[in-house]
Amino acid sequence: MESTKLWHVISFYLSSAFAIFRNLLLYTLNLNQSPLLTKFMDTILSLYFRFCNLSPCATDLDDQTTVHFWVANHRRFNKPSLVMVHGYGGNSLWQFLHQIGPLSRKFNVYVPDLLFFGKSHSKSLDRSDLFQAKCLADALKRLGVDRFSVYAISYGGFVAYRIAEMYPDEVEKVVILSSGILYTDDQKAEQLRRIGRHPSEILVPKNPDDLRLLVNLSMYKQNSLHWLPDFLLREFVTMMYDHRRKEKIELAEHLVEKKADTNLPVLTQETLIIWGDQDKVFPLELAHQLQRHLGSKSRLEIIKDTGHAANMESPDEVNKLVISFVSGCS
């Protein structure tokens, strides 16, 4: 038994070393064409997800649409299933860096790339959050996930809300982090005036200065990019945002241009709302609006001295809240 465990450990480190060497070699040979450092970091993150007992898989919904996931290697039937939905700040790998370890130990996690992010794609021209929700729910069914809770960040919150609304029997609990689902048209117009730029220019940055602005809006405690050189930020923009840039912009434009839903259904699931008190993207008043809309089955947790990206700025507190709520310990 001990020798088997030892072999697993040795195999993991050998495969990790080989993957790092292979990617270093490939990226070095293509240095002029590829963002070397950020792709290397992407490889490291992939290895970390594998270390957390997750594996990548792709689910073809039809000949037009494919949804990519990181999924638990072995489903533990004594633990709840948790679907983690990212926002515009990255893909499934980058946005949950500080959470995948603690949450994968407590739940069977399923971490999709939303359409046009990471390795998920579609030939469909539909850019709505409703289409994203239907595709994600369909993919989960094909993976055999019939009961699950969902934890979603920012743009992902719009998608998760639709899933919970459409599939009340499948979705057990909902956690929404910093997602302005109940923006009124007046509030949206005022926020756009305050920011002074179209959201698609911020959410899908073209250059290092755009990326710094996005991080500055998302963070309260510190701007972690001020000391990074432009070439490294340019690499990140190339890898993360140039891929399917047109589609990402269209997703953002859909959210901005659509009218506020004055008849948004009230979810039947217990819902935990988490918000940073210094959120500059979706002001705190939107959290209170969402809680009032959802009523007695909802709970609002406000994290002090934290901005929009609470999953990055206050990951320990967010993780504790998610684990306690989804596990039923709250």
Rank of each mutant, 00 (worst) to 15 (best):
K141G: 05
L29S: 08
S124T: 07
F325R: 00
R244L: 06
I273M: 10
F51N: 09
P208S: 05
E235N: 03
E247N: 15
F96H: 08
D242H: 13
K304A: 08
H198F: 04
L82P: 04
G157H: 05
R299T: 15
L47E: 04
S124C: 10
N207K: 11
L321I: 07
L211P: 00
L177T: 04
V171E: 07
G118K: 01
I302V: 15
L93P: 01
S120W: 02
N207Y: 06
D169A: 10
D138E: 12
K141Q: 14
T306K: 00
L214K: 05
L294K: 03
A58M: 13
V111I: 15
W94V: 09
A310S: 13
T59I: 13
A72I: 10
V85Y: 04
T268I: 08
M312C: 09
V322A: 11
S324Y: 02
A164F: 00
Q95N: 14
L233T: 03
F116H: 11
L97C: 07
C329R: 09
L61H: 08
Q95Y: 02
R244A: 13
T268M: 12
V266M: 08
E172I: 03
F69E: 05
V67H: 03
L286F: 11
Q222V: 03
A139V: 01
N311F: 13
L211Y: 08
M219Y: 06
K221G: 11
E270T: 11
L37S: 06
R299Q: 13
S120F: 07
V150N: 02
L217C: 05
V266N: 04
K248N: 14
L36Q: 01
L321W: 00
E313Y: 01
N30P: 10
N91Y: 05
Y110G: 07
S154W: 05
R75N: 10
E201K: 12
V175Q: 01
H121G: 10
T262K: 14
E165C: 14
D62Y: 13
K39T: 03
E313F: 00
K123A: 15
L284R: 01
R234D: 13
D146C: 09
M239A: 14
R299S: 15
T238V: 10
L61R: 03
R22F: 12
T38W: 08
M1Y: 10
M219E: 00
V175A: 00
E253F: 08
R212N: 13
R162K: 15
T184F: 06
S55Q: 13
H86G: 06
M84A: 07
K79F: 04
R197E: 11
F51K: 11
S200L: 08
L103A: 04
M312P: 00
A309D: 07
A72M: 07
P102Y: 14
H198A: 04
